[in-house]
C-alpha cells in the first residue's frame, strides 16, 4: 500500500468517526463503562491478592518439637520444615529462649522451680507460608514429621480469604466476558450504521475494482480509534477514582490498598488492548457481513 493510500484511508477512518459522531460518542460511552467495570474488577482482585499477601505475612503456624529431641535432631527437623515447598520462613525458639521470653507471665513463686530441667516450654518453630490456599496441606505435611509433638494454627482466615479470592476471580471473569460481548455488539452496530451511511461510496468502490480489504480499512481504523479513545478515557477515570479511594483508605486497612503505581501499566495496556481489539473485531464483523451478504454494485441505493 502506498503512503498516499495509507494517508487517505486514515483520513477516511477519522472522517467516519466525525460524520457519525453521535453514535461514536455512544460507542465510546458504552465501551468506557465496560472498561471501567473491567478495570474495577481487576483492581478488586489485585487488592484481594494484596490483602492476601499481608495476611500471609501475619498468618503463622507454631510447631512444637518432642521433648526428647537432641540438638542434632532439632537441626534435622529445622531442615525438614524448611524443605516443605510452601514454607517461606522458619524461626526456631529454643526451650530456654522461650522461658526467658515468657518468664514474666509465670508467677514468681513458681519461676525458680520451673527453671532448668522443669522448664515447661518446648522447642518451638514459628513457620510462615507463601501460599495460604495450600495452608492445610502444608500443616498436614509438618504434622507427619515424627519429631513434631503438636501444632497451633488458625486456618480460618486463610480459608475464607482463599474462598473470597476464587469467588471474585470467577465472578469478575464472567462480568468481564459479558461486558466485552456487549461492547463488541455496540461497536459492531455503530460501524454498521457507518457502513449503511456509506453504502453509496462502497458501491462505487466495488464498481471500480477496490479490493474488499481496501474497503474494510477505514472502518477498521474507525473501530480501532474508538477503542483507543475509550481505553485512554477509561484509564484517566480509573486513575482519578482510585486515587480518591487511596486517599481515603490507602493506608492502615489490612495492610493498606494496593499502590496504583504497581498496576498502572497493566491497566493502561489492558484498556488499550481490549479497546482496540473490541473496536477492530466489531468493525470486521459489520463490514465483513455487509460486503459478503448485502453490498453489491447495482441496486443498493
Amino acid at each position: 500500500m502506498s503512503f498516499s493510500s495509507f494517508r487517505y484511508l486514515l483520513r477516511e477512518g477519522l472522517r467516519n468517526i466525525w460524520q457519525n459522531r453521535f453514535m461514536s460518542v455512544a460507542s465510546i460511552g458504552v465501551l468506557v463503562s465496560c472498561l471501567l467495570l473491567t478495570g474495577g474488577s481487576y483492581l478488586i482482585f489485585e487488592n484481594i491478592n494484596h490483602i492476601f499477601s499481608w495476611v500471609n505475612r501475619q498468618n503463622i503456624a507454631v510447631a512444637f518439637a518432642r521433648e526428647d529431641c537432641t540438638d542434632e535432631q532439632l537441626q534435622v527437623l529445622t531442615d525438614k520444615i524448611k524443605g516443605i515447598t510452601n514454607v517461606c520462613g522458619v524461626e526456631f525458639i529454643s526451650r530456654e529462649q522461650a522461658f526467658e521470653k515468657y518468664k514474666d507471665a509465670i508467677p514468681e513463686a513458681l519461676r525458680e522451680e520451673l527453671e532448668g530441667e522443669n522448664n515447661p516450654y518446648l522447642d518451638t518453630f514459628i513457620i510462615e507460608f507463601s501460599d495460604l490456599s495450600k495452608f492445610e496441606d502444608s500443616i498436614y505435611q509438618i504434622k507427619q514429621i515424627p519429631e513434631i509433638e503438636s501444632m497451633v494454627y488458625d486456618a480460618n482466615i486463610a480459608k475464607s480469604l482463599a474462598k473470597v479470592r476464587s469467588i471474585v476471580l470467577i465472578a469478575s471473569g464472567w462480568v468481564i466476558a459479558l461486558l466485552l460481548f456487549v461492547s463488541l455488539f455496540i461497536i459492531a452496530n455503530t460501524i454498521k450504521l457507518t457502513v449503511y451511511n456509506r453504502r453509496l461510496e462502497i458501491s462505487i468502490m466495488k464498481s471500480v475494482g477496490a479490493t474488499d480489504a481496501f474497503i474494510r480499512v477505514p472502518f477498521i481504523i474507525e473501530g480501532m480509534v474508538l477503542g483507543i479513545i475509550s481505553g485512554l478515557l477509561s484509564y484517566g477515570l480509573v486513575y482519578l477514582l482510585y486515587s480518591r479511594l487511596y486517599g481515603m483508605f490507602g493506608i492502615g486497612f489490612m495492610g493498606g490498598l494496593l499502590d496504583f503505581s504497581s498496576v498502572w501499566h497493566v491497566i493502561l495496556s489492558g484498556f488499550l488492548g481490549i479497546g482496540m481489539l473490541t473496536g477492530i473485531a466489531g468493525s470486521a464483523i459489520s463490514v465483513g457481513r455487509y460486503l459478503n451478504v448485502e453490498g453489491g454494485i447495482s441496486g443498493v441505493i
Binding site: 498516499s4 493510500s5 487517505y8 461510496e201 462505487i204 471500480v208 477496490a210 481496501f214 474497503i215
Partner: peptide, 13 residues
C-alpha cells in the same frame, strides 16, 4: 475517488 480506491498515488491523481 475512483483512482484512490485502487491505490493510485496523489501525483498520478
Amino acid at each position: 475517488f475512483a483512482m484512490r480506491v485502487i491505490g493510485a498515488s496523489n501525483v498520478e491523481i
